[in-house]
Structure formats: C-alpha cells, structure tokens
Design a protein around this nucleic acid. Structure first.
Lengths: 211, 211
DNA sequence: CCAATATTGTACTAATTAGTACATAATTAT
DNA sequence: ATAATTATGTACTAATTAGTACAATATTGG
C-alpha cells in the first residue's frame, strides 16, 4: 500500500494545522543567530549556554528541536550559511553585466574591507580548520559546501572561456580551484597582516589569471 | 660597581651548578611533544591532561615550568615550531643550487604529499583560525611568526630579481606575500578536496609568477 | 650531615561543560 | 470540556575542565 505524501518546504511553518503547544521560535532565525556565535568564537569555544542565550531559547526547546545537540546545530548552521551565501553570490553574478569583472572586483574589495578590524575569516574555511578528527563527518559537510562555491566560480570561467572573454586556456576546473584557493588564502593572510597596500597589489597579481 | 655576567644560551642546561631537585625533563623536548597534540587536536580541544600525558610530566612540574599554563605552553610551542621550521627552510634554501626552483618544488610537492590523509595544515595558520578574540596576544605571535616566513620568501625573490633569474618585476614584498598566501590557501584547500591532479595543475598555474 | 633550594606527584577545588528528566503550559481535534 | 499532542522552563546530573596546595623528594653548598 502506498500513500501520497505532501512534502512541504522545510521553511514553511506547519504550526497552523498541528496539535500541541506552538514553537516560540523560527528554526532558520535561531540558526542564523547561532552562526554569529560560532563565527565569532569558533566551534569548540562556543558554549551551549552562550548559543542558547543568543538564540533566545531554553534548553528544553533546544534539545527537542536539535536532538543532536551542539553538533547538529553547527552542521545546520554550515548548510544554512552556505545556502544563503551561494544563493546571493549566484544572484549577484546573474545580475552583473560582466561576470569575470564581478569576480575580480569581489576579490579586490577584500583588500579594503571596512570590517577589516574584526576579521572572522570564511565560515566554512574556519570549520575545516577548527574541527578535530572526531568530527570528520561535519568536516566533510563543510568541505562539500566549499566545493560548491568553487563550482560557481568554475561555471563562470567556463562560460567566459566559451565566449572568448578571457585568454587563459587552462581547464575551468583548475581556474575555479585557483580562485577558491585564493579565497582560502586571503582569509588566513588577512588575519596575519593588515597591510592593505601590499595585499591589494598581491590580489591584482593573483587576478591576472582572469585576463 | 659592575659585574661581568656570562649569559648562557637558554638551551644549555645549568643543572650542574644549581641546588635543588633536578628536572626530569628537557623543556624543548616536552614543548615538541605538545606541538604534536596541539597540531592534531587544535588549541581549544587539546586538554591539559592530554598534553601532560604526551609530555610525560605531572601537574606539579608543569605549572612550575609553565606558570602561564596552557596558554604559555602554546605560545612557546608556536615560537619553537616556527624557529625550527624557518631555520630548516633557510638552511635548505642556502644549500640549494637554484633557490627559485627550490621554492617551486616546495609548493609542487604539496600536491602529492604522502601524508595527505592526515591533513593538519600549517601550525601557525591553524593558530590564527583557532584562537578566539580573547587570545589576541597569542594570535599576534602567530601572525608575526608567519610574517617571518613570508620574509624568507621575499628575500629569495629580491635576490633572484637582482640576478635577473625571474622576469616578474613586481615588488619582492608583493611576490613574497603572494607565496605565503598560496601556502595559506593550500592548507585549507587541501582539506576540502583531495583531488591531486587538479591541485597540481592549480599549483603550476600559481607558480607562473616565478617564471 | 644539615640547611637551603628546586622539582615532583598527588589530592583537592571550584567552575564549567553538555546533556537529561520532568512537571507545566499551550495548542488542536473530538 | 477533555484527551492528545507538542513545546517550554527549570532543576538536576555526571563528567571534565584548568589550576592550586602542599607534603615528599632529590639535589648542592657548607
């Protein structure tokens, strides 16, 4: 016997037709709050109490909604962050007149970021460095999400090559990896040296691959 | 009245002429053991007990020798690691016939590292990512040490430019930063994608700045 | 041999951790 | 209204944390 089941999008609240006391929070919203804490403190150093305070919910609600505890919350935060980020990036790219130029500007703007004082790095890159061997599965999630962003770059490059907009004839996968590697590097390098001018020149040198 | 004081190198044990029970450990040796633990587990996740076990000393000895506790141990481990690393790198460079070629090979070899399965990244880069805002001073130590390695690259590049061994006429500081940024990037990128072939091609593309 | 000194090992503390148990509260369906 | 269901808040637990206190130990100099 088979049943027709309606799969609702996860973000659609089903409160209206469900029995029981209603949730006082929206999962997406509290995960977003958790991202802030994890990003600022790091995975290990972010305590459950601190997370709950930021999320504005109590332990009862939390461990009911996130049965896997802190780890589940972190994985969900990685996914949600990455989804939002990639979606925004893809959208901005589709809106831009010159996608290669957009990427160039995207990287160059990292040299004079006004938020440079509080350098938090890349949320996914941080995960790869902060997670220990015990959290191999979570690490893998972060790795896959970062690879997804890499693919966005790769796709732009492939298209630009087809349209003869860039001279570089290397495989698009290689240029895409080059770009994500540049991104990964900057997120470390910026933390160790705030010299904006050298950083800018270094970025300009790096972006010659897009000529 | 002035006295002539003989300053002994720190690593020279002065036990022979000192009163009191002799130390059962050598500080450099135990710090080296601690590096292993910090590198594998990360700063936060490395517990004092675990560190002490690896170092083979008890709490009494530890807190006497490292009054600043875990934090002092970590800072010392950063310095000692970096000293050893830079010294080795400088030595290898001075031994090599072609220093630019050495650097090129140094980076290319990262693509087929036999220890790729256990990717621990850069000890100093990890520190920059793993330390939270509360450990700003320790972070600064790591940043300065990483900059020192950058300067080693810069010096090689400057010399190579003077000797017309590379065509790239950008400021050596910029090329040096480019190289340390490449290093920082790879130590993240390798963790997210073990595809050796793409990585190798990406590195070859990156190293064109050394032509 | 004894005083002075430095190191060691153990037992303890006080704080913090993640997570559980469960009574209470707020909702829907009948 | 009341039964069923789901969420919430609080009080608790059990483990782990970094670090301290201090008596016992091993050395040097006199």
């Amino acid at each position: 016997m088979y049943y027709l089941v309606q799969y609702l999008p996860l973000h659609q609240k089903q409160q209206g037709n469900m029995a029981g006391r209603p949730k006082i929070f929206d999962e997406k919203e509290v995960v977003e709050k958790a991202v802030d804490v994890f990003w600022k403190k790091g995975y290990e150093a972010a305590s459950a109490d601190e997370l709950l305070a930021a999320m504005g919910i109590g332990k009862g609600s939390f461990y009911l909604a996130f049965k896997g505890g802190k780890k589940e919350l972190y994985e969900k935060s990685l996914k949600q962050f990455s989804d939002t980020y990639d979606k925004q990036l893809s959208h901005d790219l589709s809106e831009s007149k010159d996608q290669v130029e957009f990427i160039r500007h995207f990287f160059l703007s990292l040299a004079d970021d006004p938020t440079a004082k509080i350098i938090k790095g890349c949320y996914l890159g941080n995960a790869l460095v902060q997670l220990s061997d015990g959290d191999r599965d979570t690490k893998l999630v972060a790795a896959q999400l970062l690879t997804r962003t890499e693919h966005i770059f790769t796709t732009v490059i492939r298209k630009a090559q087809e349209e003869k907009k860039i001279k570089n004839t290397a495989r698009p996968e290689v240029i895409g990896k080059y770009l994500i590697n540049l991104w990964n590097g900057i997120n470390i390098t910026r933390r160790s040296n705030p010299n904006t001018e050298d950083l800018r020149e270094m970025l300009e040198m790096s972006l010659k691959v897009l000529d």
